[in-house]
């Protein structure tokens, strides 16, 4: 029983990391109608940037802060330069462009930093906690805590501030937003900036666990995609819940189904994706979005 609880917590932790990326994906989709497959590689570049800053002597926290801001700027730039021109074009174009970005960013990381696997420092010291008789590590606690914090911050920003209202309006009805004086392009950039920040957080959480190399984020984004497919692509809260479910299912099936080794673990989110798409493509918590697809 204790073992099961441990695995469950691990699943929640992994799911929380997926949810960080899933929130980013969902936010971007809700705002600009783009399922940004390159989000994981953008997070990868951010994580490498943190690593680079640390190597140059900055402390971990300062590095993370600097890159957080930098990645938000970069995210806004990516929208402005690449996505904005094709946003109103055929949907197929945008999807292909995001895969182009994925390939470019992934190889940019490889080109700049090589393909060596590197260790990455963890934000928390490796301590062990205990809830009742169930032990769990600080990284588990951190991941879950970070997700809760992210959701809280997003909620406060989106529901409690003026700019959050403007962002929601721009996502909901771009034309009417213009008519009330909202610069929707700025809102889209804000959305992409927020998403990039969320992505950076997910990268920084993943790297200490699996070590830093250019292939680090591909399985994360697949799982995050599975999470948003499960939860409904336009619904950020549903995406978060979906991602957590994917994390739990992944860990539990990896533990209890013996022939799923480490190499086949990726089949879990892939199977989930296919399963959901076959049965209920709109996802469990779908937001009516008939025009998007």
């Amino acid at each position: 029983m204790q073992f099961f609880a441990q695995q469950l917590l691990e699943g929640l932790a992994v799911g929380s990391i997926y949810a960080s990326l899933g929130l980013a994906l969902s936010l971007i989709y809700r705002m600009t109608g783009v399922a940004n497959f390159a989000q994981g590689e953008m997070a990868l570049l951010s994580t490498y940037a943190v690593w680079q800053l640390i190597t140059w002597g900055l402390s971990l926290w300062i590095a993370i802060l600097v890159v957080l801001v930098g990645s938000m700027v970069a995210g806004a730039l990516v929208w402005r330069v690449v996505i904005k021109p094709v946003q109103r074009a055929e949907h197929l174009t945008v999807v292909i462009v995001t895969f182009g970005l994925y390939l470019a960013f992934n190889n940019l990381a490889g080109f700049t930093w090589g393909f060596l696997t590197r260790p990455f420092p963890s934000i928390t010291a490796r301590t062990l906690f205990r809830v009742g008789s169930v032990p769990f590590s600080s990284s588990v606690a951190l991941s879950i805590f970070v997700l809760i914090a992210e959701c809280a911050i997003l909620f406060v920003i989106l529901k409690g501030t003026r700019i959050g209202l403007a962002i929601r309006a721009a996502a909901e009805n771009p034309e009417s937003s213009l008519l009330v004086g909202i610069d929707i392009n700025r809102m889209y950039m804000a959305g992409w900036a927020l998403a990039a920040g969320l992505g950076t957080v997910s990268g920084v959480l993943v790297a200490p666990r699996v070590f830093l190399d250019p292939t680090m984020m591909i399985s994360i984004i697949i799982s995050a995609f599975a999470g948003i497919v499960l939860g409904g692509i336009g619904n950020p809260l549903g995406a978060a819940i979906g991602c957590i479910c994917v994390g739990v299912i992944e860990i539990l099936s990896g533990t209890y189904i013996s022939w799923i080794g480490a190499d086949l673990r990726i089949l879990v989110p892939l199977t989930l994706i296919v399963f959901v798409l076959l049965i209920r493509p709109a996802g469990l918590f779908a937001v009516e979005d008939a025009l998007r697809v």
């Binding site: 003026r162 209202l165 403007a166 929601r168 309006a169 009330v180 004086g181 909202i182």
Partner: peptide
């Protein structure tokens, strides 16, 4: 309420 607030957003 939000619609009205949006009218005054700028």
């Amino acid at each position: 309420a939000e619609n009205l607030k949006l009218g005054a957003i700028s």
